[in-house]
Design a protein around this nucleic acid. Structure first.
Lengths: 356, 356
DNA sequence: CTGTTAGCGCGTTCAC
DNA sequence: GTGAACGCGCTAACAG
């Protein structure tokens, strides 16, 4: 196959070691011989075998990224943030999709461990905390993205889910809704629980009766799941007048169902999502949603990971580095689907009528 | 760090080799000793060092995937297809974004080469064919996704760009448009050239004058670029009444510009995209577009790559394996943005008026 | 069925 | 400034 250091050494009439020094930019080497070696390397389009290098140095300059589904624009953006940061610092990222499946995720962590990645970014559910404990015990750096473990002190990057969900729900309450359904994902996901908490808090604060029967949990976060959950939600009697979805893709599905059932959004049904994916503003009825800075979150999580990796594995230094625990703000973005502009538009229409 | 085969060997009182056999499921080994070894491995949560394995076996069970931007749902879906297929067959994928930047892509190929990936999926532009030639010369398996090289015989998976663009344009012509702008990406991208060809073919066939002044080329394929290009297109005099965009994200931008300029879509301006990303149907004005099976394309490309990898690198076998050159069909999906349903709806409205 | 012996390609001591 | 020697953890012949 390719040419190796040994070959170059032979060609240049030096030792392998000298070649190594030349290629790795080490200072203690004569500039002339370095140039000669570099030239030979280039001529033969030498490619360093990073496997061998990693085996010897115990560093792979590779990080693992586990996501539920890269097709979800929210995760895609986070992934992009991760990869950009990684690439900028000379790292490479291995991507694995899990569809929220615990078994797949378990295998993913195993695979990454076997590939000896320098660290991992965990974006998905965990069946338990077993993996994480294992990673900690083996001193494999990792950062949790979008989730955090109450029982464990780890690095994480999340957004303020409770606040985001709280504000979304309160917004709907202000608009006069009293029966607000919440469609969401599996409860093992931390953010699912947190947003549910924010939702509940707003409901209780408003003195509305607790509406356990208005919370609908599905396995997936894809639009199809949103359709199913919305159908369930909208068949409750009396019918809820608003749906707060765990994420925008779920909201998308809810919208499809509403349309299919002949319900107007927001007139008959208000919908609020979460994430503010780039397409939310372009929907048939632009989606009111809670924005989180997905790209930035990805970048930040990766930065924390790389800093941890490069701070060296030794525990002393670890002590000095404060735990990277970042909570990004959640911000309500009001568009059309919640009906906030309904009054306004009606007013405008009335004016037009009067004028005409 | 972790426990190694040597440790297990010592613990089990056997040789390293025996441990290797047990762990790798080789047949020539006593079932009892295998179980004993497996037990010890599990106890110590042994993780095989795939770096060492790869170094020795010259196989990494890793493929590289180079995309312009994973945030583009089209590429995200392809990536998902790739990763699903890879994972199903025990491979792992390294993801790199290039933003269509030739230099970044060059570095990406280099990085992947250095990591000794078993093969690569190339989804992005190439500054020239130099990389590809190098890959060929070094017998590194690769498959081109969404592009093909006329000068080189390689595996590729594409969709019928010429046909797709042709049908999209002809559709607009049928609807009565005579001034159809085309907004697109850099001409070094094969698919850009192919779709331009399909567009031109339809224009010429219809006997419309060739409209070089109606083709607008930008560097990126993101919505922002679509906005800029549409602004340029819509400032031509006489103003085009339709825009055929290279892809849905560009179409998204065009729509934003139209809205900003106070133009109604499709009444004042028809828009047709390409790709049929999952959100195209949910747009404010559902997008007419050309669908390509992105997920399937990703899967197929990866399958071809893995088959090639596993067919062994030897040239004899290579001869037996037919080149994987797959062209997926392109299918026009008619929604609202092209105005095809305009007449119908007007008719319906008129009926309503009459009835009322 | 099992152990021995060589590497895989590179980093990292050490001497010189 | 340069070279020799060893080891990273594993696979792959070969013997036995």
């Amino acid at each position: 196959m390719g040419i190796t250091m040994k070959d170059i050494a032979r060609l240049a009439g030096v030792s392998v070691n000298t070649v190594s020094r030349a290629l790795n930019g080490k200072p203690e080497i004569d500039e002339k011989t370095r140039q000669r070696i570099l030239e030979i390397a280039r001529e033969h389009s030498y490619s360093p075998n990073s496997l061998a290098a990693s085996l010897a140095s115990k560093k792979t300059r590779t990080v693992g990224l586990i996501v539920p589904d890269i097709c979800d624009p929210f995760y895609a953006q986070q992934a992009r943030g991760v990869e950009d940061m990684a690439r900028a610092r000379g790292y490479t990222v291995i991507l694995i999709n899990t569809d929220e499946d615990p078994k797949t995720e378990l295998k993913a962590v195993d695979t990454l461990r076997s590939k000896r990645v320098d660290g991992m970014l965990l974006t998905s559910v965990f069946p338990g905390i077993d993996h994480v404990v294992l990673l900690q015990k083996q001193h494999i750096p990792f950062v949790l993205l979008n989730r955090r473990l109450t029982s464990l002190d780890t690095d994480y990057v999340v957004n303020d889910n409770i606040k985001g969900a709280y504000e979304a729900t309160r917004h709907l309450i202000r608009l006069g809704h009293t029966r607000i359904a919440h469609i969401t994902g599996p409860e093992r996901i931390t953010s699912v629980r947190e947003r549910l908490a924010g939702y509940t808090k707003a409901i209780q604060e408003a003195g509305l009766s607790i509406q356990d029967d208005l919370v609908f949990t599905g396995e997936s976060l894809k639009p199809q799941s949103g359709e199913v959950l919305a159908r369930r939600a909208l068949s409750v009697n009396p019918r809820p007048t608003a749906i707060f979805a765990f994420c925008d893709t779920l909201a998308m599905g809810a919208y499809a169902t509403a349309k299919e059932m002949g319900l107007m959004v927001p007139e008959d049904l208000a919908i609020v999502g979460y994430d503010d994916i780039p397409f939310a503003a372009c929907f048939e009825v632009p989606l009111t949603t809670v924005a989180q800075p997905s790209y930035e979150m990805g970048r930040t999580a990766c930065k924390i990971l790389l800093d941890r990796i490069e701070s060296g594995g030794n525990d002393q230094e670890q002590e000095g580095v404060p735990k990277g625990q970042v909570v990004f703000d959640a911000r309500l973005v009001i568009r059309k689907s919640c009906g906030a502009y309904l009054g306004q538009e009606r007013r405008r229409q009335n004016l037009a009528v009067i004028k005409g």
